[in-house]
Design a protein around this nucleic acid. Structure first.
Ligand SMILES: [Mn+2]
Ligand SMILES: [Mn+2]
Ligand SMILES: [Zn+2]
Ligand SMILES: [Zn+2]
Lengths: 147, 147
DNA sequence: ATGTTAATTGAAAATGATTATCATTACCAA
DNA sequence: TTGGTAATGATAATCATTTTCAATTAACAT
């Protein structure tokens, strides 16, 4: 199963970085790797407590911090707040987020180099990095809106 | 002077939306319209208190809320936090932010329509909106880094 | 100009999210 | 198995933002 594999990869990354494998981290990583939508820390906490009602919110925050420093998760930015997180796959990619249900997919290949060059010329800045996110409606929410 | 004009425009917009023109709003709008960099509410508060030490932080938050609902300011998103705000000019534009000193300029013409179409086809989503920000070094910070 | 009235203000308190502290628990290398 | 130490969760602390409320003041009609 692909999710199991991704979760194992994350746990291995944590281990390589000096962390121990604990049941709390197992649960948190499992939830994050299989999530189809961006989650707030509190959402993730609620999901994890279904598997272990004893698990603490603080551990969720601490694990998120570690996963972020390993580059395995990313923050999702929205006009109404930027506290959600989503897994990051390998390589350079961007997110497309359904504004209705929150479902999130990623894509690659934005071909923005020409834009960077033009803006650099116009402004005198050097362009080192960029952030791009798309918002829209997923197929299911489009169908629901139709009828 | 251009900044005076922009500040007046903002005050007029506030007035049209039913707000009264007060000295607190005058000061806050003046600081926001002439700022060359994104500001956090606390930064803005500190700047405004130089002109009126009596002005309250709550009024800063309230005025920011009104200006945002009028579409005159926008949130600036960064990997280390998304609490800064910057004025928004007319029309569709994006920000380029100096990661060293915070100086911020805007640009237009991202020509992303082809990308939207491709991603919509690939994912089945409809693409309704997008967020794009560039990060780099402004001319001054580039010069400083050079030597 | 003056009074009326409702919007606005700032101090203080409340809230909500995140972080720090610390005694206890449990992973894991030896 | 065991010892050292990282990790945990309860609790408290912190920080940004929002709410409350009595006093103030801008806008408007006299
Ligand atoms: Mn890209
Ligand atoms: Mn655009
Ligand atoms: Zn953001
Ligand atoms: Zn700079």
């Amino acid at each position: 199963m692909q999710n199991q594999t991704l979760a194992s990869q994350w746990l291995l990354s944590l281990q390589k970085s000096g962390c121990r494998i604990t049941s709390a981290r197992n649960i948190i990583v499992e939830e994050l790797t299989c999530a189809q939508r961006a989650l707030e820390p509190a959402d993730l906490y609620a999901l994890c407590r279904k598997k272990d009602p004893h698990l603490g919110l603080v551990t969720v925050y601490r694990t998120l911090e570690q996963l972020e420093s390993l580059g395995l998760i990313q923050r999702v930015h929205r006009s109404d707040g930027c506290h959600m997180i989503m897994r990051k796959n390998d390589g350079h990619e961007h997110l497309l987020i359904c504004t209705s249900c929150g479902k999130t997919v990623s894509f690659q290949g934005d071909h923005l180099e020409l834009l960077f060059d033009r803006v650099a010329l116009e402004t005198g800045f050097s362009v080192e990095d960029h952030m791009l996110q798309l918002f829209g409606l997923c197929p299911e929410c489009r169908a629901n809106a139709q009828e």
